[in-house]
Amino acid sequence: MAQLDFIAPVSPEQAAAALLAGGAGARPLSGGTDLLVQLRSGRLPPGLIVDLKRIPEAIGIRQEAGGFVIGAATPGIALGEHAALTAAWPGVIEAANLIGSTQVQGRATMAGNLCNASPAADSVPALVAARATCLIVGPAGRRTAPVESIAVAPGRTSLAPGEFVLEIHLPARSARSADAYLRSIPRTEMDIAVVGVGVNLTLDADGVITDARVALGAVGPTVIVADAAAEALIGSKLDDAALARLDTAARAAATPISDKRGTADYRTKIAGVLARRAATIAYARAEKTA
């Protein structure tokens, strides 16, 4: 009979070795809010569960080189409780804190959200817009990769056998910068994003946007970096014309499917709506920062 095994290593290297030895059926466990559901539903056959929560580096938030290092097993609720992190990256935190219920927030992690590789993962567009990177540990050692390189298709990642994400790194914040994330769901809570949009902006002293990054979730097999949408904003003060260009560019970048959560037509339109709204929020936040 298929048997689930569980280990809780205390170092990243032990975890990588165990994952490698466990083969295709081995999975790292951080929050478990996706993993346990998949195991229970039979979508994932029982194999080896490698719990990351006893690895010191995998837990908690550290400020390093002006940026933030977030351990892979840090639950969403702990992110929201971190005042400096929330002040620097409000969009990333609001995205992470939109995942599931309060109960889910007590467990779910951004690294898990990333590596589950759902096209609708809430935190990923915000992380991509933030130009976050992740520290990957594997049998061959450690490497750093941009978050957008992790998911390659729904449910599939670029991680090699034995590799797992140990930390997520958010870069140092430049002045007059801010981000925002919005998603559309049918209810007010508890749903999977029908569309999610992360926007990250930097303004000059006059309020002109000098840098922008727009990432779209749930409108393609993986998160879409909408470069044209970002370009639509750069050089503007987010006037109506810029917002209209952003809307058009976001819709053009979206390549959604129709499914039980929404039609392709609806998703395309909402990508434009949310891009405008998220940009407006991010802009207002950036203006308020020093």
């Binding site: 569980f6 466990l29 929050g31 478990g32 809010t33 346990l36 559901v37 569960i49 719990d51 219920s101 309060t102 109960q103 889910v104 007590g106 467990r107």
Partner: peptide, 8 residues
């Protein structure tokens, strides 16, 4: 606060 069905 957690869902005990999502904890091993």
């Amino acid at each position: 606060l957690v869902c005990s069905c999502l904890v091993l």
